[in-house]
Deep mutational scan, measured.
Amino acid sequence: DETGKFLVLALYDYQEKSPREVTAKKGDILTLLNSTNKDWWKVEVNGRQGFVPAAYVKFL
């Protein structure tokens, strides 16, 4: 159920650099879980949760 969740689009490829991050490919649609940090947003992609740089994604 996606009610109340926001989707964001990956603008660039991002390769995770730590276990707390997730890899995303340009064009991926990610479920935004938390955007309270202006630099790192928590997302879910391909069943995995983790952080990506906020500058790499935008709201749909």
Rank of each mutant, 00 (worst) to 15 (best):
50 G>Y: 06
17 K>N: 09
53 P>A: 06
16 E>N: 05
34 N>S: 12
59 F>R: 08
37 N>P: 03
12 Y>T: 06
52 V>Q: 01
28 D>W: 09
52 V>R: 01
47 G>P: 01
25 K>Y: 09
57 V>F: 11
30 L>E: 01
18 S>C: 12
38 K>V: 09
58 K>F: 09
26 K>P: 05
41 W>E: 00
1 D>A: 14
14 Y>V: 03
3 T>V: 12
5 K>H: 13
13 D>C: 12
54 A>F: 06
48 R>W: 08
11 L>A: 03
37 N>I: 06
29 I>C: 08
55 A>T: 11
23 T>D: 04
16 E>S: 15
41 W>K: 00
18 S>T: 11
29 I>D: 00
35 S>Y: 10
39 D>Y: 15
6 F>P: 10
35 S>Q: 10
14 Y>K: 01
2 E>S: 14
59 F>T: 08
35 S>M: 14
12 Y>S: 06
57 V>K: 00
13 D>H: 05
32 L>Y: 02
25 K>M: 09
51 F>Y: 14
14 Y>L: 02
60 L>P: 03
31 T>D: 03
43 V>D: 00
32 L>R: 01
12 Y>Q: 11
11 L>T: 04
22 V>A: 02
56 Y>F: 13
4 G>H: 13
14 Y>R: 00
5 K>P: 14
8 V>C: 10
44 E>C: 11
21 E>P: 04
55 A>G: 11
38 K>A: 11
46 N>Y: 05
57 V>R: 00
45 V>F: 11
27 G>P: 02
38 K>Y: 05
55 A>D: 11
13 D>P: 06
7 L>H: 09
47 G>F: 05
53 P>E: 06
14 Y>Q: 01
34 N>A: 08
34 N>L: 11
9 L>C: 14
44 E>L: 07
36 T>L: 09
30 L>F: 06
9 L>H: 02
52 V>T: 01
53 P>V: 11
3 T>I: 13
20 R>C: 15
32 L>N: 01
1 D>N: 14
38 K>H: 10
2 E>V: 14
58 K>R: 11
5 K>R: 13
54 A>R: 09
6 F>K: 12
53 P>W: 11
49 Q>G: 03
26 K>F: 06
44 E>T: 04
35 S>H: 11
28 D>R: 02
36 T>H: 11
